[in-house]
């Protein structure tokens, strides 16, 4: 029995130590010695070319800052539903908080509506920061630029307003690990004023299923 335990511990240590992922094969025609570990499927990739995602750590618990109004929360939950219907499982759990959140690393996922925004980034409607270790996402935070942008829920009151649900769909896509894409997708980089783009497309659904089966 003792020797089995020693072997078990030994194997456990070996498994714990052997964590370097395997790269993809080289390509003689392109004179490449190695390639990405995985196909990207529209996801951000780490240094080994692995897709970063929450893996099985679902649903993702996200705190909502103290400045979240009912309108914002309704749009957010609608946006979350779009992704959950696309993949057929619960992906997000939201919890209101009295705190003011930032993107500083605090090991809590959060969404905040910022009334103060840096001049350098004034053209950005929102920024989603992701942190990961190996290929496992460990923290995600969304900041919405409410200083330089106005948002609408159902009907805009002016021509330079952004559709809130569409924005949340896009930013929640980033939280899931998706990067910007070209073509027909809710993850295309630019969300024009007034445009409603809230339904994940076939491409988006396929990408999501690549990682979250």
């Amino acid at each position: 029995m003792r020797s089995k335990l020693v072997w078990g511990l030994f194997i456990g240590i070996l498994v714990a130590c052997d964590r370097l992922p395997k790269l993809g094969p080289g390509n003689e025609g392109q004179n490449k010695l190695a390639s990405a570990a995985e196909e990207d499927c529209g996801f951000v990739q780490n240094s080994f070319g692995q897709r970063v995602s929450w893996k099985q750590s679902l649903p993702i618990k996200i705190f909502l800052g103290s400045e979240f109004t009912t309108d914002y929360e309704t749009s957010l939950r609608e946006a979350a539903k779009k992704w959950e219907e696309a993949v057929g499982r619960t992906l997000f759990v939201f919890e209101r908080s009295n705190q003011v959140f930032t993107t500083a690393r605090d090991y809590r996922n959060s969404i905040s509506i910022s009334q103060t925004w840096g001049e350098v980034d004034r053209t950005l409607q929102a920024v989603t920061s992701l942190t990961w270790y190996n290929s496992q996402l460990t923290e995600a935070d969304i900041r919405i630029n409410a200083q330089y942008f106005s948002f609408y829920v159902d009907k805009p009151s002016s021509t330079n307003e952004v559709h809130l649900t569409s924005l949340f769909v896009h930013e929640l896509g980033h939280i899931l690990g998706l990067k910007h894409l070209t073509g027909v997708s809710v993850m295309t980089e630019i969300l024009d004023y007034l445009l409603k783009r809230e339904l994940p497309t076939e491409q988006d659904r396929a990408h999501l299923k690549c990682e979250y089966n």
Binding site: N46, S47, T128, S129, W132, Y133, H174, L178, H180
Partner: peptide
């Protein structure tokens, strides 16, 4: 060089 372990709006 790319930042390790962090991305902003899908961009490293």
């Amino acid at each position: 060089l790319k930042a390790e372990g962090v991305a902003y709006s899908g961009n490293i």
